[in-house]
Design a binder for these strands. Structure first.
Lengths: 352, 352
DNA sequence: CTGAAAGCGCTAACAC
DNA sequence: GTGTTAGCGCTTTCAG
């Protein structure tokens, strides 16, 4: 039980002033009075315990415990000009990549004493200025943003906020501050090497016609060309990738499969269509056809057969973003280390 | 361009005091001075515009615009004792139900001017007191929590915080304040009715042995019994549900399928195993067997055939939670309307 | 409709 | 080690 009625100056009677039951929330002066010390000493016990004598610390701790004191970080933040909150803006959390990003980023930040304010922006950038206004008004100590299509006014606000910013995933040509980018071309090259390592001698690419998917496809085909292997099919379809497009692609590919072929699809959804149609057509996976998708969607693992895919590591990215920001928050200056890549890995399953 | 050097009392020279480049952040007094009004008037223009004359408003607005003023909501919150932030605690955002919940909850709250502080707790309740401490220290105006396994100390903190709390999804017997629960038994009954409506005359249930799944299964079997139809198989396996358990269940069910049968699985993962094994065994869906899962996982839609399932509506829940909290924040007292149910729907696809 | 004074609860900076 | 003073940037309250 924690009853306590230490109201400073009671000009009118308590019962007249205060709402019936509600006891006033405990504040630092209450604790200080209970422990017989100055408020500042209580503050020190909480924030810099090594600067207080053990005896005093014990007395104060006891008072804190007894009163159930929860320091008001809003007040502390105003005074110290540090909110110990960071804002994060993501387009969605429905995608595993972003879910992983948010999850690991908040875990890392919380461990360092920061709380994450999450904003889900959707993919349309309408009224990003209003969003930034609402966020920056809370004076976060740092900011994580994903994607880069922001209006000039919004960007100006970010710059004037003068806090560390890390941009993740989709990086503009002119970054604001720190950056964690994703090397789509590199993914394509790695997939080519992976399939080459599996012994495939002929290759094919199925890609949606969006710029990042095309960059991956180009990395793939260029690598294949570089090692002098034939590309039997290179097909692009309207974005976004769909399972239907994958089935169509498989039908186009079917007549060309007199020899084993390694196929890179621009997304797992497309790969799923390919695999499904392959079953219908009686194409043996991975003997006649090796299939690699992109995205590591949930169904790729559960599908029969499970689909080999490229998994951009959201959680690694979240940790890295936290690391970059925390470095800055610890006072480190901008440097060459402020650029990183989103890690990815090829998850090998039954289609290769 | 927004240069301005309106520092109140400059005892020493500006250049000596201020860090080289960094211009001081704009505050309300700067705007007031620029507009030739009192700070309070600027505050009114922002918060209660109808109480300020149009001319003054225009002057102040212009000054705000020109200086790029972003009000410090931390300071405002300290003064007004309203943070306009709400805290949300979820075990994960990897599950579509929780992702939908968070997404729609934050959208609804943001629309009302509240920012969400998200905490992902994981499923282990270790140090929830530390988590609550970090959260409540930021003085959120309200709280959304999911699940109910909190330590007594943590619950005590919640109660002493005296803010509206809504518990979602998994509801303790003794709720703290408002509640949005999920009626598992009702789901089971609805699934039974749905399959009855499809014309199945014999039924089966496959469930993991966790209490909520079992409640759903019981709702299902009791309904089937109530209408006098036979239950040909009722199998439970160790939690959690797996695709493997689904395949095993299908093998057990195979010899009993001389007549069409309606099957309810405790999760989509299990339903997926069933569907996969049915293909191997040459069982026709939905003619010989109707399959309903639970959870509406991504793969259920993409699978071939797509799986009929029960979808707990995260987004509806998030909106409802926001509605409940906003009602309270608007001053409404506790009432019978403080209890709601998580809505769900049966998503009909190819397996029924 | 506008302004002045007095804090909100805490901590930086400086005494002792 | 500990206390005192003076704000952090805003809003409440009350006076015009």
């Amino acid at each position: 039980m924690t009853f306590h009625h230490k109201k400073g100056k009671t000009t009118v009677s308590d019962t007249e002033r205060a709402p019936p039951i509600r006891t006033a929330p405990v504040k630092i002066t209450d604790v200080a009075a209970a422990a017989g010390v100055a408020p500042m000493t209580v503050s020190r016990v909480i924030n810099t315990p090594d600067r207080v004598s053990p005896e005093t610390t014990a007395r104060v701790r006891a008072a804190i415990e007894r009163l159930g004191y929860v320091p008001n970080l809003i007040a502390g933040g105003l005074s110290s000009r540090k909110s110990r909150m960071v804002a994060a803006i993501v387009p969605t959390i429905a995608h595993p990549m972003f879910a992983g990003l948010v999850q690991s980023f908040s875990a890392s930040m919380r461990q360092a004493g920061y709380q994450v304010m999450l904003s889900i922006s959707g993919y349309d950038q309408t009224d990003d200025e209003a969003l930034f206004h609402a966020l920056l008004g809370r004076r976060p100590d740092a900011l994580l943003i994903t994607g880069s299509a922001y209006t000039p006014g919004a960007l100006q606000m970010l710059i004037e906020a003068r806090i560390p910013v890390v941009e993740v995933w989709d990086v503009s040509s002119r970054p604001i501050d720190m950056v964690i980018g994703f090397d789509h071309a590199h993914v394509g090259r790695e997939v080519a090497d992976f399939l080459l390592g599996k012994g495939y001698e002929r290759f094919a690419s199925l890609s949606a016609r969006d710029s990042r998917a095309l960059t991956r496809a180009r990395g793939f085909t260029e690598r294949v060309a570089a090692v002098g292997k034939p590309l039997v099919l290179e097909q692009t379809t309207c974005a976004p990738s769909t399972a239907g497009a994958g089935r169509d692609g498989m039908r186009a590919l079917r007549p060309l499969l007199d020899q084993p072929c390694g196929l890179f699809c621009s997304s797992d959804l497309m790969a799923f269509g390919v695999v499904t149609e392959a079953r219908v057509q009686g194409v043996a996976l991975p003997a006649q056809l090796g299939v690699v998708g992109f995205g590591n969607f949930e169904f790729s693992e559960v599908n029969e057969p499970p689909i080999t895919t490229v998994s951009p590591e959201g959680s690694g990215t979240g940790r890295s973003a936290a690391t970059l920001l925390l470095r800055r928050l610890a006072g480190e200056r901008a440097s060459d280390n402020d650029r990183m890549q989103v890690p990815f890995r090829i998850v090998e399953r039954a289609t290769t």
